[in-house]
């Protein structure tokens, strides 16, 4: 009798713990509902504009910048790279298909064979390697130009990340989700502290952007990065930004395109599913 009761209890506990992990779809719903409650007057898709959707002054400055976009010449460089044949006569189109407007929405994607998340930047460099070309550096420069060009061509389309019902894919998703919510570094902050809990609140002279819609405008052109670069190139990839955030938390940043950041991107992009791509975009 006691054994049966123990068995039933443990079976019940197992069932409860299985239920306790929400599916990605449930996570997405809760994430959106949270931001809708937090910013009730805003259309959800408007959050793709980050703090420019929340503050009139920032919006005016941003719109002024977007009239003569500082990223335009780098998007053009990305287009040139996209079209430039490799030494073997092939080009990016042989890896991604001829229509550059259909590439961005496919990434990040789950590679069931290699059991890993493939981001757009990873795919770009793997295409180069497969064709005997030297891979680009991960965070800025040519990789950001090509990625920005593909983002620019995909403007107006919706983010559409698929989390397949595959235990390994779900594990990667959960890993990224955990990374997003776990506090880290000497300042004991999580991604969610700034971009969920305190989104829209002040951090010194600036506002904290909402996590919902973050990924729509990456690669991003940041004024800060442009000031640092010799030729005014302020474009940077999502993983460059992840590294910057971790640095600000005083946690050791991970390498761009490391498993940790690819899994984080898987979760982060999925949370913006259904939002309109407007990459690249200007940010401070």
């Amino acid at each position: 009798m006691k054994k049966i009761a123990t068995l039933l209890l443990s079976a019940g506990l197992v069932a409860m713990s299985a239920q306790a992990v929400p599916s990605p779809q449930e996570d997405l719903k809760h994430f959106r509902d949270y931001f809708q409650r937090k910013f009730p007057g805003l259309k959800l898709d408007e959050l793709r504009n980050g703090i420019n959707a929340l503050d009139e002054n920032h919006r005016m400055q941003w719109e002024a910048m977007e009239e003569f976009p500082p990223y335009e010449e780098f998007v053009d460089k990305g287009k040139a790279l996209w079209e430039k044949p490799f030494k073997n006569g092939k080009s990016f189109a042989d890896c991604f298909g001829k229509d550059p407007s259909k590439v961005r929405v496919k990434y990040p994607q789950w590679d069931a064979k290699k059991k890993r998340v493939v981001t757009l930047e990873l795919a770009i460099n793997e295409c180069r390697k497969a064709n005997g070309e030297k891979p680009f550096k991960w965070k800025k420069g040519p990789i950001a130009w090509v990625s920005a060009y593909l983002g620019y061509m995909a403007r107006g389309q919706k983010i559409h990340v698929v989390i397949p019902n595959d235990p390994d894919a779900l594990k990667a998703y959960e890993h990224g989700k955990h990374f997003f919510y776990a506090k880290r570094g000497q300042l004991n902050l999580s991604c969610a502290d700034c971009h969920v809990k305190y989104a829209g609140r002040r951090i010194r002279g600036n506002l904290l952007s909402p996590a919902l819609g973050h990924v729509t405008h990456f690669p991003v052109f940041r004024g800060k990065w442009a000031n640092k670069s010799k030729d005014g190139d302020g474009l940077g990839t999502l993983h460059r930004r992840y590294g910057g955030c971790n640095k600000q938390q005083r946690a050791r940043p991970f390498k761009a395109q490391s498993k940790v950041y690819r899994d984080l991107e898987f979760f982060h992009q999925y949370m913006s599913n259904g939002m309109t791509i407007n990459a690249p975009s200007y940010r401070e």
Partner: peptide, 13 residues
């Protein structure tokens, strides 16, 4: 810190 955050998730928010 990492151990304390082992079960971190949206429920904390």
């Amino acid at each position: 810190q990492a151990m304390a955050q082992k079960n971190a998730g949206p429920q904390n928010y």
